[in-house]
């Protein structure tokens, strides 16, 4: 079966190489404080960013879907455009706004984890909004009308009708964002190089800067396991939910 062979050669083989290369470095890497700090930091940033994206994305999607304002359609299509841009653009823009020579001159803020979180929220919020906007546009108008006629104010309608029915979309957008922010490299490289080290950054430092390939490979394997593990869990969660809904 040639296609399978080709995929094996192009995708699986390099991964296997990485795993094999990593073997001698496992003891050192797992024991090092540097690695453990980066792991914790990676998860912290990813979780904070994802929560931020969910909050901001839900808010914006609700406003765009249900509060009539001129240009709502333009904003919705801008969301799509945002998905096409590379993430480091946001980081670059941040240096103009918050950098030492930037508009706001916030000093050291740019190299803190919070700057990374803010940049990731800015960039990844559209990933949450896209499925949410789709889900909300599918929500029958009559359901909102009937809920209102039964005496429910806008807040109750949002909490008890809109959000429960948008839950699969929230779960899908949120899990995609969590995966992407766990692996985010460009934003962290541009902003947090000095003060914030995440796993992808550490792989880069070990492999490209310090030529410590085995260590880089070991960290990369952890990264892969983390991503695939999360992917498996979420697939199961989403898949199970879909099965129940249909």
């Amino acid at each position: 079966m040639p296609p399978v062979l080709l995929i094996g050669l192009l995708v699986i083989y390099p991964l296997v190489l990485v795993a094999v290369e990593s073997v001698p470095a496992w003891g050192d890497v797992l024991g090092s404080a540097e690695f453990r700090d980066a792991l914790v930091r990676t998860v912290q940033i990813a979780v904070c960013s994802t929560i931020g994206c969910l909050v901001v994305g839900t808010f914006l999607a609700v406003v765009i879907s249900f509060v009539p304002f001129p240009g709502a359609r333009v904003v919705a299509s801008l969301v799509d455009t945002m998905l096409a841009l590379p993430s480091f653009l946001v980081a670059l823009a941040f240096t103009f706004i918050y950098g030492t020579a930037g508009i706001l001159r916030t000093g050291g803020f740019l190299t803190t984890p919070w700057a990374v979180v803010l940049a990731e929220i800015t960039f990844y919020t559209p990933f949450v909004m896209r499925p949410l906007l789709a889900a909300m546009s599918r929500l029958p108008r009559a359901q909102l009308d009937v809920a209102a006629s039964l005496g429910a104010g806008p807040w109750r309608v949002l909490r008890q009708v809109v959000l429960p029915e948008a839950r699969p979309a929230l779960l899908a957008g949120g899990s995609l964002t969590l995966l992407l922010t766990l692996n985010e490299f460009g934003i962290v490289l541009f902003l947090g190089a000095k003060g914030t080290t995440t796993l992808p950054m550490l792989v880069h430092t070990k492999g490209i800067v310090m030529f410590d390939y085995p260590a880089a490979c070991a960290i990369a394997v952890v990264q892969i396991v983390l991503s695939l593990g999360l992917y498996a869990v979420l697939r199961k969660a989403l898949g199970g939910r879909r099965a129940r809904l249909d």
């Binding site: 009559a142 009308d145 009937v146 006629s149 005496g151």
Partner: peptide, 16 residues
């Protein structure tokens, strides 16, 4: 609508 106290039934049921 929430302050009118009117019962509404629509063609597509619109159950939650």
């Amino acid at each position: 609508p929430a302050k009118r106290g009117i019962g509404v039934v629509v063609q597509q049921y619109a159950l939650f």
